[in-house]
């Protein structure tokens, strides 16, 4: 609005010198005309107060709106940028987990739970890797060796050693990660590839290491 006032005195002064001019400003004239003696004196100041033209108002509003949208957009962009840190302190998604012979048959290896969030299970036929995230609401279940099941302490979901859900509210089995043998004979686990049983992905040979 301050821009408006700076522009308007010029336009107003011009209009006051030609009172009968049939311009857009003439619409406002009748208010000023009845005042007899004060016409030349008051005219320069009065349009300064009322000099908001329709065009001027809309351009000011438009400018304000553009500024607002620009600022909001910049803020949003900055906020979005903030979600992607420059440095991520995450372990690499792919790691080596020792030789298959290090794993006892029928046991759940919890060694990598803290760092990588996986359980490695070895059974008669081979090995597979389970994610430690409960499929109900994302808590970390505990492996109960005595009962041979994973049990979530948050809502009581239970999973068998295979990762299949069988009790509590969890709607689907634990997810598996890709597992293979590296060149040096070590087990190579790739967390960037997920296998979900309900989508039939456990049949994928990459989800299970046959030994």
């Amino acid at each position: 609005m301050s821009d408006e006032k700076q522009e308007s005195p010029g336009a107003g002064a011009e209009a006051s010198e030609t009172p009968a001019a049939p311009e857009a400003t003439a619409v406002k004239r009748p208010k000023l005309v009845p005042v007899k003696k004060a016409v030349p004196v008051k005219a320069p100041s009065a349009p300064a107060d009322e000099g908001v033209t329709r065009r001027g108002l809309f351009s000011a509003l438009g400018l304000g709106w553009l500024t607002f949208v620009g600022a909001s957009g910049a803020f949003l962009a900055a906020s979005t940028r903030f979600l992607f840190p420059n440095v991520r302190y995450e372990p690499p998604s792919s790691f080596r987990a020792g030789l298959p012979s290090d794993y006892a048959v029928g046991a759940v290896e919890e060694r990598f739970k803290a760092q990588y969030g996986v359980w490695i299970v070895r059974n008669q036929e081979g090995m597979y890797v389970l994610s430690t995230v409960c499929t109900h609401l994302g808590c970390t279940p505990n492996w109960l060796a005595a009962e041979q099941k994973f049990k979530c302490p948050c809502h009581g979901s239970g999973f068998r050693m295979s990762g299949i859900n069988f009790e509590g509210p969890a709607p689907r089995p634990l997810e598996r990660y890709a597992i293979s043998l590296a060149d040096d004979g070590q087990v190579l686990i790739d967390k960037s590839r997920l296998f979900q049983e309900e989508k039939g992905q456990w049949k994928d040979p990459a989800s299970f290491l046959r030994l």
Binding site: A114, G117, L137, T140, P141, P153, C154, H155, G168, P169
Partner: peptide, 22 residues
């Protein structure tokens, strides 16, 4: 992250919701 309290309980005023989640 490796040691979830067992049982893991919500604040008391949310326990009704947590029970619903079961």
């Amino acid at each position: 992250p490796t040691r979830t309290p067992n049982p893991s309980k919500a604040p008391w005023y949310f326990l009704g919701l947590q029970e619903m989640l079961v």
